[in-house]
Design a protein around this nucleic acid. Sequence first.
DNA 1: AGCACGCCGACT
DNA 2: GTCGGCGTGCTC
Length: 800
Amino acid sequence: MKVAEVIVDVPTLQTNTPYSYLLPADLCDHAAPGMRVVVPFGKGDRLVEGFIIKVEVTSTAQPALKMVSGYLDEEPVLTPELLKLANWMAKTTFSFQISCLLTMLPNVMKAKYQTIATANQVLTDEKLRSKLPLQVPVELTKVDFSPAERRKIQKLRQQGALTIKYHVHNQARAKLITVLENQITDFTTVASQLRANATEQQKLLAYLKQHQQTRFVQQNLVQTAGLSRSAVQSFVKRGWLKKMMVEQRRAPELQQYVRDAAKKLTSDQQRAVTAIQAAITAEVSRPFLLEGVTGSGKTEVYLQTIQRALELGKQALMLVPEIALTPQMVRRVKQRFGTQVAIIHSGLANGEKYDEWRRIRNGAAQVVVGARSAVFAPLQRLGIIILDEEHDASYKQEDNPRYQTRSVAFWRARYHHCPVVLGSATPSLESRARAEKGRYQLLRLPTRINQQKLPQTQVVDMTKQAAAPTELFSEPLLTAIKEKLASHEQIVLLLNRRGFSSFMLCRDCGYVLQCPNCDISLTMHLDTKTMKCHYCGYETQIPKTCPNCHSHQIRYFGTGTEKAVQQLATLVPQARIARMDVDTTKKKGSLAEILRKFGQQQTDILLGTQMIAKGLDFPNVTLVGVLNADTGLELPDFRASERTFELLTQVAGRAGRAEKPGQVIIQTYNPDHYAIRYAQQHDYESFFRHEMRLRHLSGYPPYYFTVKLTVNAPQAREAAQLAFQLQEELQAQLAKTTILLGPTPRPIARINKRYYYQLIIKYKQDPKLHASLEHIQQHAQQISRTGVQIAIDPDPISFM
DNA sequence: AGCACGCCGACT
DNA sequence: GTCGGCGTGCTC
């Protein structure tokens, strides 16, 4: 007798444990850990998706176990490694095992559920009868039922008046196309067997004879070549064509990539490549920190180390922030490694993602490039893991399971005995500090390739541009823009705020239009002609009069990308300007289109939010302007300076990447701020020292580890009460050296009609912390029915 | 999550 | 009596 241990798709703490199921005799040999199954669960034996994590043979008669009702996969979708990883992740991120297992797979592999009720007899209750007519299957989730009605339905089910059927749908399907294989060897014999009036069949035969290949896609024959479907059918019937279903990739390689050989390395690059290659060969899980200024050729280092892994028959995983996954980046990798590359990014449709994933799973892809979730790519012979832009905030998942990609990468590297390379021009303080301590091996690329200098950077003090404080473009910046336009060079402008105006103010009564669901002002968007909330998505008409006092004296303040583009267009009417932000790149393919036009110099100026700071590599860009360097500095977060320094350095790096020298102009109201000063001087090292001193003084990471606890509830008082209660409990349990901050309301205290309070735990070492947090997790489960939620976020990316 | 059970006040 | 609301407990 074989028994499977199954983790079921019921995300609660009580069910966060394996359940045992009997395996049906006919499918016994088939079952293996990592396969998805359908199992009956709970009182009504409703069907849920589950993952087999173990298969055991037992001779002893088990207490009445239920039976696995079906398989969703032919082969295991998760490897033993990933099953283990899920377990570790669940523990360290305080999330459910099932959530971890499901995040490792493409979205389509989460099953869809359906509950269908059919009335077996005419129901007596009038209302219920209209909703559930006799013998008509009704999907219960699609119809509104009151709690009382739901209860009645259950009762009727027990009485047999009504049948309930559960369905689990596997959405993951390979796309199949019909392919016809030519079986004809002797065309003349076949021709003789065709009747003279079978013109369509004769056409088909002629076509087959004319085309040398043996396999034809049916759709091509019928639609492109204009042959008749019935003629094809007759051929299949007579055995001249063999029909078969073939899996097809949904995002086929449309572009042919010209293979590109390894480039010659600088001595610094060579040193880095040698060190990393040695670790790959020696199969040691050593972490490297590759600190290289923008344009120093980190990518070439990645490519050549990947090359070594491939030569040794191993595989490579390269992670990049989503916004750095530009067509340019993809091209470079594909030019080097061709069709053995799989790319996973958010631009792919679900089906396309699934196909890419399967290419990895079945071993067709040896190199995987992708954003955060690609860290779970089912590669089985990892030789190297690369995290480009390792400091990037998007590596931390912001909802459950709140994993840090970097930590997952290290876990996998230990499992595979392979090195991890963290690359950045501005490493996170955590990583840089570890390199200092010797826990990571530091590799430096201090100069740009081709001896190109880092761009000249000028800081413009906006407080001294007093003429009109609302003016967005200072004199020096405007002059530089005009110069570059005149010499047909391109410009990148950063304004880290989208929309047209960031708030509406009534000058008569002082009213500011706010989101009804959140404690934040609404942003005006001119392209949609609405006021939008950037937190919950609420939208409303732009008011013509003050909603409070009906005065006409309403004004809009704060400048976003939309307004900046408009102003710029009047200042330099000859320029062709493109805006790049969330609003203009939401549509599939629109980002690629904006970049393509800019690359072909059909636009002169690219103005956008922080998404323009990463990965763009256009040789003709010689000027980068930062319209307002202060937006990030104002945030109440301990990482505000680090984020600002990063952003300025990254965006400055877009200028002067080829022969022409670059120029950077930073406009700010805080010209003496150290983050801005050091960014101006391209001095990461000094910034690092300065910021480390501050972190040391105030006790923040990397000197302390942190956990963020967030409580939210529909009522502010409930949230506050619980937050204070948690604070007291933790105070009593935790070590004396552990510091608790708060509880405080979140900087934006209300989002989507819920109030948020948070509590920060700072610790160096606290053996009791994990148990305390597990206890809080249990408590959270118990109170979840009352609508109060607790989120535990280990190593939060921000305190906001 | 979803289902059942038990307890309790309210109502034809 | 029993209907409907609500809190609690269990799911191989």
